[in-house]
């Protein structure tokens, strides 16, 4: 982060761009002036990405925190800024502010079984947490990755997910909402997978990231298998402007998502989570 003024973007250029699905792209960035000590960040943190002349959006960092020399973002093209962002080509320039926000408690989770439940683009902010756990795989018990998407074509990072399963002993369960016959995997909602895992609930930490309704019902399923709210962490999204707790755009009850979040311990927001008016 710019130590003098966190509102001032630093110029980066696109090193590589890859299309993950029909509407999701991964950009790898490097500092325009080269050098620097890479881009250290914690899993779950985000940057404000500024497309010159178009606007600025919060996007989670989706790369490997143990290899901070490359800055990676996975973005779904949904509107004005993200669509332009996804069209940038290697060599193009953009502004970056960050990293901002809280992180997944990957170190605190050592010694536990881990359950990661994620849907859609929600795997992007969790990928850095997985990378960090892989670097110290022996410090964790079972690691489950329960991942849901709309259709097989919307699944992210599937080559990697296959590798993780074997290389790092990750129990992956992937599901989609509907599929054609050539899909040989699960069809159904991701929350349904929670009841089918075998973990020790009092020594388990759960990380959830996805649409709010999916996170809400994932909590219901976690309660059923005995994982308590103070062992559950979720990542929240709200519209954001300054990202440093000044403007109040991303206020969520008494919290600002940009600085108190995006990752929250569930018991700390339980009273407002899912409330219609918030």
């Amino acid at each position: 982060m710019n130590p003098v003024n966190p509102m001032l973007p630093e110029v980066f250029k696109i090193r590589r761009s890859a299309q993950n699905t029909e509407d999701v792209f991964t950009l790898e960035l490097e500092r325009k002036n080269g050098g620097g000590a890479g881009f250290p960040f914690k899993p779950g943190q985000f940057n404000m990405l500024y497309v010159f002349g178009v606007g600025e959006v919060p996007i989670s960092i989706s790369g490997d925190p143990t290899r901070p020399h490359s800055l990676v973002h996975t973005t779904r093209a949904v509107g004005t800024v993200t669509r332009t962002l996804c069209q940038l080509k290697p060599g193009d320039e953009m502004g970056v502010r960050g990293p901002f926000g809280t992180s997944w408690p990957v170190e605190e989770a050592e010694g536990n079984d881990i359950v990661i439940v994620t849907g859609g683009i929600g795997l992007a902010p969790l990928r850095p947490a997985l990378y960090q756990m892989f670097a110290r795989r022996e410090r964790y018990g079972k690691i489950y990755l329960l991942y849901g998407a709309r259709s097989p074509g919307d699944l992210l990072y599937m080559d990697e997910v296959g590798l993780w399963q074997h290389q790092y002993r990750i129990e992956t369960r992937v599901t989609v909402d509907a599929a054609r016959r050539d899909w040989k995997g699960n069809v159904g909602v991701v929350t349904h997978l929670v009841g089918k895992i075998s973990i020790d609930p009092v020594h388990t930490m759960a990380f959830i990231c996805g649409p709010e309704i999916m996170m809400r019902f994932t909590r219901v399923e976690l309660t059923r298998i005995g994982v308590s709210p103070d062992r559950t962490f979720i990542s929240m999204e709200r519209n954001m402007k300054c990202a440093v707790g000044f403007c109040g755009h991303c206020q969520y009850g008494p919290h600002f998502i940009c600085k108190d979040g995006p990752v929250f311990r569930f018991d700390r927001i339980q009273n407002i989570f899912g409330r219609r008016e918030i």
Partner: peptide
Amino acid sequence: HATRMQLMDVYGNV
């Protein structure tokens, strides 16, 4: 319940 979630298209293709 699962069918309703699927119907809601929660991953919402824009």
